[in-house]
Design a protein around this nucleic acid. Structure first.
Lengths: 134, 134
DNA sequence: GTGTTTGCAAACAATTTGCAGAATT
DNA sequence: AATTCTGCAAATTGTTTGCAAACAC
């Protein structure tokens, strides 16, 4: 049976204030402001617990740490090749992709994830600035 | 300047014999048959080198180790939730997705990756067998 | 009270790196 | 001869886990 924990609530509350899909470590350093003694292990334990309860989503976009997203409705992500930031992509999810993939595939497809890659606006701007100054 | 190495060639040659997208460790144990003294570090170094040269592709599908694919032309993957195997999905890549994602996004989108999740045929079969026997 | 959660530290897994010697050019 | 690559071991990074005390019910 699940018991209440102030740390878990704080972690979830913190995530909901953010749209940048923080990593476990970012959650840790931020939640420490409220719980100076909290341990990284507790953060990891609660993040996986919340993810397995379906209250948050875990995002693996190929940089070597997982990101966490308070928005559990299906949507796609962007990951900047330069700064590594992760952002939501505001576009409709293509559920037909599952059916399309299923056509030639003999296993059972249940879901998919899409990650777009490229350069985020901030990195584009700093690139423009460095070109102007050269 | 790049110099030839027998180990690197062997790693690439081994990958090309496989369609199951091995991990670095799988490459290591297999390449060891030919080079008993090869070290895991060398395997990792060559896999990243080959990937950055564009001669192989690195696949991160959310299980916590990277997989490597000798096929560098764009295509999608399936990752089994049960056994963790990684397979190719024979469907046309949807280049329009980049344009669709770009519409509402102020960064620069260059590419995307799609990973489908579910149950592979082998795992479906062993599930069927266990149902029959119960 | 019983069972869950925490903080701490140690353990783990995947990957990277420093270095001296071997291989390639 | 100059430079790159290798094997080895140690280091690093991200994440998980065992345990005793603290907390929730």
């Amino acid at each position: 049976m699940l018991k209440y924990s102030r740390q878990r609530e704080a972690i979830k509350r913190f995530l909901m204030t953010r749209t940048d899909h923080p990593t476990a470590d970012t959650v840790y350093v931020n939640i420490k402001k409220e719980f100076p003694n909290i341990s990284l292990g507790t953060v990891y334990r609660n993040l996986s617990l919340l993810a397995s309860l379906g209250e948050i989503a875990k995002i693996s976009c190929g940089d070597n740490s997982d990101h966490f997203d308070p928005n559990t409705s299906p949507h796609y992500h962007f990951c900047c090749r330069h700064c590594g930031c992760v952002q939501d992509i505001p576009m409709p999810t293509v559920s037909m992709l599952n059916q399309e993939a299923q056509k030639q595939f003999d296993g059972q497809i249940e879901s998919h994830s899409i990650c777009f890659y490229g350069t985020c606006r901030e990195c584009l701007e700093s690139y423009d600035l460095s070109r102007q100054s050269s």
